[in-house]
Amino acid sequence: MPSQSKLVVFGDSNIAAVRHAYDEGLMTFEGYDVEFWGAAGPEYRNIVYNNGALKAMKPDAQKTVLMVNGKGRKLLKPDDFDVFVFYGVRLRLAEFFSAYLDLLLDPDRAISEAALDHAAAQFLQERRAVRMAQMLKADGAREIVFVYAGFPCWGIVDQTEAGGVLDSFPRVVEAKPEHRARLWGALERAFEALGLGLIAQPEETVVQGMFTDETYAVADAAKNQDAVHKAPAYAAKLLEKRF
């Protein structure tokens, strides 16, 4: 029997959806031995790339990554896995999309492909997870794929209220697939230039310009006012594009 490739799903609280999808058999990661590794919230922010490995720096975070991993793995080293899936990881692409969809939909503004590529590259450079991935890659990681955990779910919170996407960028609801495709293209090129991959959000899950269909919201999303986390079905749909 041929040996399986090794894959780790690394990330923040969004990897919970992947875990559920995997446990529920919505996806199998066929051909891979799978591990999970990461932490949520403040503890995720305590994960750093240091001395050739991703590691949790504080006791609480170390405890969490061990709980998430379940196999006693304290560190993630470049040659530990064939594929590193950076899932969620606070990529916050909604910030990029809201600002740029607003720009693309404004008849009095424009941006060239070349300038957009520069902006996408800079946006990524400002993401801590991307910088960690670059170091991991430079130290020998074979494949790193970023997976965007999805736009906020529609209908969970009032996005027109202060702090909501539509408060600052009401135009984005008019965005069409071609607008999103331009931005995904720029981001994919920027990731590729760094030797990293990107799995974009499937078009069929997008509604209202740059929101995720409510059917993919996490359980009790409305009760918890949680537009961020997604259901296992969403994670499965996203990852089946590649695995």
Partner: peptide
Amino acid sequence: QKAPRKAKGNADLVCEEEMLNAFA
């Protein structure tokens, strides 16, 4: 300058609940 927009809600609290549900 307008302050950068943040996602609504108590995100950290919700995040930790998500992780506990999945992995604990």
